Structures are given as structure tokens and as C-alpha cells.
Amino acid sequence: MAVEAEFFTVQEIIVKYKLSESTIYRKEKAGTFPKKVKLSERRVGFRAHEVLAWAAALN
């Protein structure tokens, strides 16, 4: 599925960036992390290019 490759799940971000779920949502609410996107009724994701840009800005 090409669409899924364009998004990171919360679990993928937790593993890749060593952030807790609560930290991800706290940073999102504060405006220091990309906003989540509703992918389906019970699923959200974060746009991969936005997360990668956020990570690059940290360095």
C-alpha cells in the first residue's frame, strides 16, 4: 500500500525516535510536533515528510 508508506504510526515513531506516546501527543498539542491525520475511523498517522523534517530540524 503506497498510502501507508506516506505515514508513520505512533508505534513507528516511538521505536524510531525513542519518544513515549504521551510525549508525542504533548508535543503535537504544543505545536512542536507535526499534527496527526485521521486515516480511518479508528486509525491515525503522521505524515512521513513532516516527521522527517521535524527530526532533521532537531540536528
Rank of each mutant, 00 (worst) to 15 (best):
E6T: 04
Y17H: 14
E12S: 11
E4A: 06
A53M: 02
K16Y: 01
A53I: 00
N59E: 05
L52F: 06
A56M: 08
V15E: 14
A30K: 12
L19H: 08
N59H: 10
T9L: 15
V15S: 11
K16V: 01
A57F: 02
E28S: 14
S40M: 04
E50Q: 12
R47S: 10
A57M: 07
I14H: 04
E28Q: 15
V37R: 11
E6N: 12
S22D: 14
R43L: 14
P34Y: 05
R43M: 10
W54H: 02
A53V: 02
K18R: 15
F7G: 07
R26D: 12
S20L: 13
I24F: 04
A2T: 03
W54E: 06
H49K: 11
A2R: 07
R43W: 10
K16P: 00
T23H: 07
E4F: 06
S22V: 11
K38F: 08
V10R: 10
A5D: 10
E50K: 11
K16R: 15
E50A: 03
T9W: 12
L58K: 14
G45T: 03
A2D: 12
T9M: 12
Q11P: 03
E4S: 06
I24D: 06
L19R: 08
E21H: 03
S20T: 14
V3G: 00
R26P: 00
E21V: 09
L52R: 13
L19I: 05
S22Q: 10
Y25G: 09
E4T: 03
E6Y: 09
V3T: 01
V10G: 03
V10Q: 06
K35N: 13
L58P: 00
L19Y: 01
S40D: 14
K16W: 03
F33S: 03
A56C: 06
F7D: 02
K29T: 12
S20F: 00
A5V: 00
A56F: 00
A55Q: 04
A55L: 08
G45C: 04
F46H: 08
K29G: 04
Y25L: 07
T9C: 05
L52N: 11
K16A: 11
Y17D: 04
E28H: 03
V51G: 03
E4D: 04
R47N: 10
V51I: 12
Y17S: 10
I14D: 00
A48K: 15
L19F: 07
A56K: 13
V15C: 11
F8V: 05
R47P: 13
